[in-house]
Nucleic acid binder design. Sequence first.
RNA 1: GGGGGAGUGUCCCGAGCGGCAAAGGGGGCGGACUGUAAAUCCGCUGGCUACGCCUUCGUAGGUUCGAGUCCUACCUCCCCCA
Length: 419
Amino acid sequence: MTTFRSDFLRTLSERGFVHQISDPEGLDTLFATETVTAYIGFDPTAPSLHAGGLIQIMMLHWLQATGHRPVSLMGGGTGMVGDPSFKEEARKLMTVETIEENIASIKQVFSSYLSYGDAPTGAMMINNAEWLRDLNYLEFLRDVGRHFSVNRMLSFDSVKTRLEREQSLSFLEFNYMILQAYDFVELSKRYGVRLQMGGSDQWGNIVNGIDLGHRMGTQQLYALTSPLLTTASGAKMGKSLSGAVWLNADMLSPYEFWQYWRNTEDADVERFLKLYTTLPMDEIARLADEAKGAAINEVKKILATEVTAMLHGRAAAEAAAETARKTFEEGGLSADLPTVEIPAAELEAGIGVLSVFAEKTGLVASNGEARRQIKSGGLKVNDATVTDDKAAVSARDLTPEGVVKLSFGKKKHVLLKPV
RNA sequence: GGGGGAGUGUCCCGAGCGGCAAAGGGGGCGGACUGUAAAUCCGCUGGCUACGCCUUCGUAGGUUCGAGUCCUACCUCCCCCA
């Protein structure tokens, strides 16, 4: 791998963020000589980004940390088109309201990683609805569409594989790449953006933008992609025991977020420290060095706490670490575990275990699932395995702390609290 | 416009002579082993007021004691010919 002169590229490169760069020397020179504005696009398909997108946010973070200007582009306009899924079933397009709500909700997270403002390196959040929604179709075709060769678009892997797999590709989706290319050009014209970053799957789209820029007379533009991240065993990033690893605290508590990182596979620890924390490289090297055998668990805790601290703040991260310590290392309970409140009278009367685990707390999906889990010994009340699906949980099960601890498997715990 | 295929358990792929809650994978979940890891092994993987009941095989009808399986129409997709 080349050694870069610029702080930004050197940092990204040594931390493992770089997959491809369109013109490494040129871009390096650019970063070494001026303050560069670069962007990454995010689709507002959900009210929160999840761990899979964290790597992109970290790239913006480093961009700013090394003296440049990050732009997060929200796809308020492209969201209208929707990135059609592979399945048929013309998924309902999102309404404008949903898109706007999602964007508002996603915004909160960025301020944990970037500082916004008018300073030369102040981060910006831009919505491509700004120029896409009022686009005039005919004008657009004449100004932008004429620069695209269908022959060439058909030759892109993203399109080709789709056609070869005999899966339909709607015109809508076909246009998505044009809009994204156009975004790059608009950002370049309006805000002086020079670089677009993204996951490696975005390479073709980004390069399209560069080409369009050439034809439409922008400055030289650049592309930088990050590797597609999977865990060492091949799973996609961003799935936890209970679903997606959302970044918004109201969708996934800091404790659960911490747990996700705590459970990192051994083989991923060093890589994740580089990608998802801002610990200095020599510090990471030291940690990786002492992380042999079971000692690696200590390093995983550091990883979890550092990642959580960046997102939710140091205090929340340490609270999560403490909760985990009490729960797992002392086998006790901590008031900070996820808690479900229940009317005291109801508990007094006694509630069936099935109902408690399924309806009341949602730890398992249904009564049937609860029954199956009991059969295989997966449910516990106050750390005692449930063996009878007709058993009931009542006020007698309250611990001295005044709660009932319910566990599903070894890692999922909920406290039942009478009110 | 003509001809030929396909749509299965809403995570995915994928079998299915008219008796099917539907084979088999993958994934996921639980258990054992460990270190809250990986690998490995075992079990589970429609719902319920549960020895019974209800809802599932593109949609809507029909034939049958009985249909994922047969017939009709429709929808969507793919391939070949024009």
